[in-house]
Design a protein around this nucleic acid. Structure first.
Lengths: 203, 203
DNA sequence: GTTGATAATCAACACAATGTTGACAACTAA
DNA sequence: TTAGTTGTCAACATTGTGTTGATTATCAAC
């Protein structure tokens, strides 16, 4: 994102403030966290906070951006314009989704904070969109839904996936990433593809 | 909720504070709204605010409760333990969902505020649960999903429905409530029912 | 109606958080 | 090493918070 290289001090300040907010969010709700607290915890002057962020919500959104960037890495190698048809292609899709879930699991503490907040679906959807949005156009053109329906069907499938990941985190990731990845893909396609497209390999 | 009858003054105070918050939320984000502002707008002393609510978030949750109560009315007459099988039963289900959507449409201004906030899925899910939770047990026992899968499938379907309503509100309710209700029911059952249960009447 | 116990409202207070300034210090690139 | 730029911070005025005890409205019982 920042084109120009960041000052060493800025890097330090931002790192400290981010860590501080995450720590505080484990203790209490964001709405009860003050800028003063964040700065005291990070041992950074409050005025410096204002030099970089508007308020705690703004800071949180930057933490979200960081996580998004990391997830993005797993998608770089994945060609989104291919609708899986062969066994090999299904395996590739499954691997990609599994990798992302593995990443969420490895960073469970932060992810639960960001993804599992019942009052904050916004971020969850952003993550899902990262994965599925490039698919959309290709998928719907192969379905038997009417044009008007397609947007809603997509919305259903996308938000549905968010719901699964939320529940998985709620259950402390009791199921394997592979199991969840399979279920995610299976349900997503069960919805987005038309009847004629239902893949035997998914059932 | 309140067993005892409320003082006339209390009714007035709560009404004013709620209206005030809703008005302010049309202007700016909840995180930027202060208790002082709410009270000035409502012309109520700040100390009185504290006598009834903790903070603006608490007040908002009470506004949500009010809306929940209203939606609940549409469900009273509806028997949740029946899985629709006959045409008549499907029509009853469709009517119930349509009625709720009509209510949301009639209160679009408030509903968009509560339901369409991308950062607040919590309330949306509450509404959906109101409708579908009683169904759950009956539905999954008739599906071909494994026991482990059922919780996730349900979560997918429920959250998916939220996504559709959000999108509908985003589109300024361009489609008829009937169209959306049909799609909601169709997709919900397409997911929650097993293959063997797929109803011809829904396609 | 009048009354008296109960409960809600509010003005005023002490304190805590906010947002901004201008002076100083650290960083970078020449 | 140095000059110019940029980041940090102490201190200030302002605004918001949460609580108290005095005051007033409500309502049930008479």
């Amino acid at each position: 994102m920042p084109v120009k290289k960041e000052d060493r001090r800025v890097k330090y300040t931002k790192k400290m403030l981010k860590e501080s907010l995450v720590k505080l969010m484990h203790e209490k709700d964001l709405s009860r966290i003050t800028i003063k607290e964040i700065c005291e915890e990070a041992d950074i002057n409050r005025a410096t906070f204002y030099a970089h962020y508007q308020d705690p919500y703004d800071l949180l959104s930057k933490i979200e951006d960081d996580l998004m960037d990391n997830v993005q890495v797993y998608l770089q190698a994945f060609d989104h314009t291919v609708i899986p048809r062969s066994d090999t292609e299904w395996t590739r899709t499954l691997n990609m989704v599994t990798n992302i879930l593995e990443y969420l699991k490895a960073n469970a503490s932060l992810c639960k904070l960001l993804l599992n907040d019942k009052r904050n679906l916004h971020f969850q959807k952003r993550i899902m969109l990262l994965v599925y949005d490039p698919y959309f156009l290709h998928l719907v053109t192969h379905s038997d839904y009417t044009l008007e329906e397609r947007e809603y069907v997509y919305s259903f499938a996308l938000t549905g996936c968010v719901g699964i990941v939320q529940t998985w985190l709620d259950n402390d990731m009791a199921q394997s990433t592979h199991t969840i990845a399979q279920l995610l893909i299976r349900l997503f396609y069960r919805i987005t593809m038309g009847k004629k497209e239902q893949m035997a390999s998914l059932n």
